[in-house]
Amino acid sequence: MTQRKLIAVRIDPNLCVGSGMCVSSYPDKFAFQPDGHARYISPELDEAAAREAEEMCPVSAISLVFDEGEQQ
């Protein structure tokens, strides 16, 4: 079984509606950009926080990228 490593947290600006679920739940990981869309800001990737934010996003704008090139 291969251990996957999280390499990026992506937020699709075409889907993000700025609901703020990720920002309010993880203000040390996510922040609003001037255009009102969220962005992952932490220099360290936190898979647990990113996965939870991905699951709670009402428009599925957050995706996780792993070293195998897979997106969750």
Rank of each mutant, 00 (worst) to 15 (best):
C16G: 05
L64V: 09
F32Q: 01
T2F: 08
S25I: 00
F66N: 00
C16T: 03
M1S: 15
E55L: 14
T2R: 13
V9M: 02
A48K: 14
V9A: 02
Q33E: 06
P34T: 11
S42D: 15
Y40G: 04
A38D: 07
I62D: 10
G36E: 01
G20V: 08
S63L: 05
E55D: 15
M1G: 15
P27N: 10
S19G: 14
A49F: 09
G18V: 01
E47C: 03
R4G: 00
C57F: 05
A31Y: 07
A49D: 13
E70T: 10
D28I: 01
G36Q: 04
A53D: 11
Q33G: 03
M56V: 09
C22D: 01
P58G: 03
E52V: 02
P58A: 08
V23K: 04
L6S: 06
R51T: 13
E44H: 12
C57R: 06
H37L: 04
A61W: 06
T2S: 12
I7G: 08
D46Q: 09
D12Q: 13
A50D: 02
P43G: 09
E47W: 04
S42F: 02
D67P: 02
N14C: 12
I11N: 04
L64Y: 12
R10T: 13
D28C: 01
Q72L: 07
A50R: 10
Q71A: 12
Q3H: 09
A8I: 03
V65K: 10
D28R: 11
S60M: 04
D46K: 12
E55T: 14
A8E: 15
K5P: 00
A48N: 11
A53P: 12
K5Q: 14
E44N: 14
T2N: 10
